[in-house]
């Protein structure tokens, strides 16, 4: 794990990205942003973020497909994810949290921080 944790934000809305970016950077968390799945998958491969925040209403495909599409393209060891929107079936990745829209940013950011803290604790544990 890097010195400071990093989060990849994948959301079509520039506003959402800006809010999360500003709020997370203020808390000393590095952020990466992408508007589209393809670009996001590239970033996930290259930068190996600790956590991914993925908007499920990313394109025309139905909500379940967005997640699957991303995972197929990113083709990397999957970090935990926070999914924004609603999904009928929980995805296969066990480290997935779903936050229904419309959400409050305070709660979402607290959730992101909690996950990162857990990760941090786990990585410090002796192997």
């Amino acid at each position: 794990m890097h010195a400071s944790p990093s989060v990849l934000i994948v959301d079509r809305s520039e506003e959402t990205r800006e809010v999360l970016e500003t709020a997370l950077e203020k808390r000393g968390i590095r952020t990466l942003c992408a508007a589209r799945i393809h670009r996001a998958a590239e970033m996930a491969r290259a930068q190996q973020p600790d956590l991914i925040v993925l908007d499920l209403e990313l394109d025309r495909s139905n909500l379940g497909q967005v997640c699957a599409k991303f995972q197929a393209e990113a083709d990397c060891q999957q970090p935990p994810m926070v999914l924004l929107g609603s999904m009928q079936k929980a995805p296969a990745n066990p480290h997935c949290e779903i936050v229904a829209k419309p959400y409050h940013y305070g709660l979402l950011i607290r959730k992101i921080e909690e996950i990162l803290e857990t990760l941090n604790r786990d990585s410090r544990k002796p192997a």
């Binding site: 809305s13 506003e15 959402t16 809010v19 500003t22 419309p102 409050h104 940013y105």
Partner: peptide
């Protein structure tokens, strides 16, 4: 409308954060 609401929530969240941290850029 839900999307617009989401945007307004984001904006207000930043304003609140900026006010409490005295950061005018935010």
């Amino acid at each position: 409308i839900k999307n617009i609401l989401q945007g307004i929530r984001g904006g207000s969240y930043l304003i609140e954060m900026g006010l409490s941290e005295h950061d005018e850029t935010v």
